[in-house]
Measured scan of single mutants.
Amino acid sequence: NQASVVANQLIPINTALTLVMMRSEVVTPVGIPAEDIPRLVSMQVNRAVPLGTTLMPDMVRGYA
C-alpha cells in the first residue's frame, strides 16, 4: 500500500504548499504519492482543499 499526500489543514485556493500543510497517509483512492511531498513545496493549489482531503494531481498547479 502506497502512502498518498493528505491535507493537514484547510488549504485555501491559490495557496503555496508548505511541509506543515501536508502529511502522508495510506488512503483510497490513491492520490499524489507521499514521496513527491518535497516537490510539492511552493506549488499552488487551484482549489480549496479541506482538512483530510487526498491531494490529486489536478489539484496542484504545475504538478501533472
Rank of each mutant, 00 (worst) to 15 (best):
R47N: 15
R39K: 12
T18V: 10
A16C: 10
L19D: 03
V45G: 01
L55I: 14
P33K: 13
M59P: 01
I32T: 02
P29H: 07
L51Q: 14
V27E: 02
V49T: 09
D58S: 12
A48W: 08
V45I: 11
T28Q: 06
V26K: 04
V6C: 04
P57K: 11
T54G: 03
R61V: 15
I13E: 15
V49P: 02
P29C: 15
A64Y: 03
M56S: 12
V45P: 03
T18M: 06
R39G: 06
G52E: 06
L17R: 00
N14P: 00
Q2M: 14
R61M: 12
V60K: 00
V49Q: 02
Q9S: 10
T18A: 10
L17S: 00
A48G: 07
M56K: 05
L51C: 03
P33W: 13
A7H: 02
I11H: 00
A7Q: 02
A64T: 15
L19R: 11
Y63R: 03
T54K: 04
P50T: 14
L17D: 01
L40V: 09
V30Y: 11
M59T: 06
V49A: 06
V27W: 02
T53C: 06
T18R: 10
T15S: 10
L19W: 13
I13S: 14
A3T: 09
I37D: 00
I37N: 00
S42R: 09
V41G: 03
T15P: 00
P29Q: 07
L19E: 04
N46D: 12
G52P: 00
G62H: 14
N1A: 15
R23I: 05
E35M: 09
N8M: 14
A16Q: 08
I32A: 02
L55Y: 01
E25L: 04
Q2R: 03
R23E: 03
M21V: 04
P57Q: 06
P50Q: 11
A16R: 07
M43E: 04
E35F: 09
V26L: 13
I37K: 06
M22P: 00
P33N: 11
M21R: 03
L55S: 01
L55W: 01
M56L: 10
N14Q: 08
V20F: 14
Q9Y: 14
I13L: 08
A34M: 12
R61H: 09
T18G: 04
R47P: 02
I11C: 03
D58N: 13
V30N: 06
G52D: 07
V45Q: 01
V45L: 11
R23W: 03
A34G: 11
L19M: 15
S42Q: 10
V5D: 00
P38H: 13
R61Y: 11
A16W: 13
E25V: 06
P33F: 08
D36C: 08
M21T: 03
L40T: 01
M43K: 14
S4F: 03
M22S: 00
T15E: 07
P50D: 13
Q44A: 11
G31C: 04
L19Y: 12
V27M: 12
S42G: 15
L55H: 00
L51P: 13
I32C: 03
V41N: 04
V20S: 14
N8W: 07
G62W: 06
Q44S: 11
I32N: 00
I11Q: 01
P33E: 05
V6Y: 02
Q9V: 13
S42M: 13
E35C: 07
D36L: 09
T15H: 07
P29A: 05
R61T: 14
L51V: 11
M59R: 03
N8C: 05
V60Y: 02
P38A: 14
T53S: 14
R23A: 07
T53V: 14
G31K: 01
T53L: 15
V26F: 08
N14F: 07
L17Y: 01
S42K: 09
P29M: 07
G62M: 08
V27H: 05
V49I: 13
E25H: 08
M22G: 00
P33T: 12
P12L: 11
E35Y: 10
V45F: 00
V27C: 04
M59G: 03
N46L: 15
R23M: 05
A3Q: 06
Q44K: 09
G31A: 04
V20R: 12
P38W: 13
L55E: 01
Y63S: 03
R23T: 04
L55M: 15
V5Q: 01
Y63H: 04
T18Y: 03
G52W: 06
T28C: 10
R39E: 05
I32H: 01
M43L: 08
N1S: 15
R47S: 15
V27R: 07
R39F: 15
G62V: 04
Q9C: 05
A7D: 01
Y63N: 04
L10D: 12
A48S: 15
T54I: 09
V20L: 15
V20D: 07
I37M: 14
R23V: 04
V6A: 03
A48L: 10
A64E: 10
G52T: 03
V20I: 11
A3F: 12
S42F: 12
L40G: 00
R61A: 10
P12I: 09
Q2D: 15
L10K: 07
E25F: 05
M59E: 03
A16F: 14
R23F: 04
A34C: 15
S24T: 12
P50R: 14
Q2I: 08
Q44N: 13
N8T: 15
S42I: 03
T15W: 09
M56R: 07
A48D: 13
M21L: 07
N1H: 06
L19P: 05
A3P: 08
S24Y: 09
M43V: 04
V49G: 01
M22K: 00
T54A: 06
L19F: 11
V41P: 03
M22W: 02
R39N: 05
T54E: 01
V20E: 07
E25M: 06
V49R: 03
M21D: 03
A48P: 06
M56T: 15
Y63A: 03
P33I: 13
M22F: 10
R61G: 13
A3L: 15
R39M: 10
I37L: 13
P12W: 08
T54R: 03
N8S: 15
N1Q: 14
M43R: 10
Y63I: 04
L10C: 15
A48C: 06
S24Q: 10
L10P: 14
D36P: 00
T28Y: 11
V5Y: 02
I11W: 01
S4A: 03
S4V: 02
D36Y: 14
V49Y: 02
N14Y: 09
V30P: 10
T28K: 04
D58C: 13
V30F: 13
V30Q: 07
M43F: 12
T28R: 03
V45H: 00
A48I: 13
A48N: 09
T28L: 06
V27P: 01
M43G: 03
